[in-house]
Design a protein around this nucleic acid. Sequence first.
DNA 1: TCCAATATATAGATTCCCGATATAAGGAGG
DNA 2: CCTCCTTATATCGGGAATCTATATATTGGA
Lengths: 115, 115
Amino acid sequence: MELDKSLISGSIPLLVMKLLEAGDLYGYQMIEELRRRSDDTFHLKAGTLYPLLHGLEEKGFVTAYEGEAAAGKPRRYYHLTERGREALREKEAAWNEYTRAVGQVLRGGACCAGA
Amino acid sequence: MELDKSLISGSIPLLVMKLLEAGDLYGYQMIEELRRRSDDTFHLKAGTLYPLLHGLEEKGFVTAYEGEAAAGKPRRYYHLTERGREALREKEAAWNEYTRAVGQVLRGGACCAGA
DNA sequence: TCCAATATATAGATTCCCGATATAAGGAGG
DNA sequence: CCTCCTTATATCGGGAATCTATATATTGGA
């Protein structure tokens, strides 16, 4: 089943930064990692990822450096900065608050006796 | 804290249809209900809701009818159709699958041991 | 040789939500 | 009486985010 693309909206930076928390990765690797770690649920597109990475770089959340290229084009690795880790913690908190609120609505709303 | 607006993307139709599952509501009421049931987390805007309702109507997920107006403009009530209930079940399933996948990535990915 | 996969990158189109604005009626306060 | 706020619905334009399509470059398999 194809997930509503729009559902993923907004959480992609969170997911990408989370991937980088454990160690530096290059773009293509993030796409594969995300697919693997989500049980094939997320198929992040290259056209989505690279502009996003450039944006994170501008904000100072990640830094980039050229790495060894075993084959093909040189690999561009990304590293999560301290500011990026801070932003990641904030985004995780926002995500948790958001899903809690949605879950509450789906379960029938805040409060007590039914509706 | 202001939630990243983009996080809400895509889940608004789900939330609105969920509100209508329990009974017919008019637009303004949905805004207040959603705010209440989410502990003031979601502040759905009129400029978001009404075009959305028209869209749901076009898809056959809701039907609309004029109701008694205690004051001011006549109230336009919305009713969730059988097709709408079906769509709601699908959207709820998609939401659950999506949050499960995000949670899995945030906890460190699919794979082996506990997770 | 041609195609697929790896690897990065940009531009255009689309979708989605919000802010601003308009309409309309009733009640409160000056 | 008149103005402002609240209720209530509605539309439009802007901005943000993602996808599709495309471009470039190299390696390995059919």
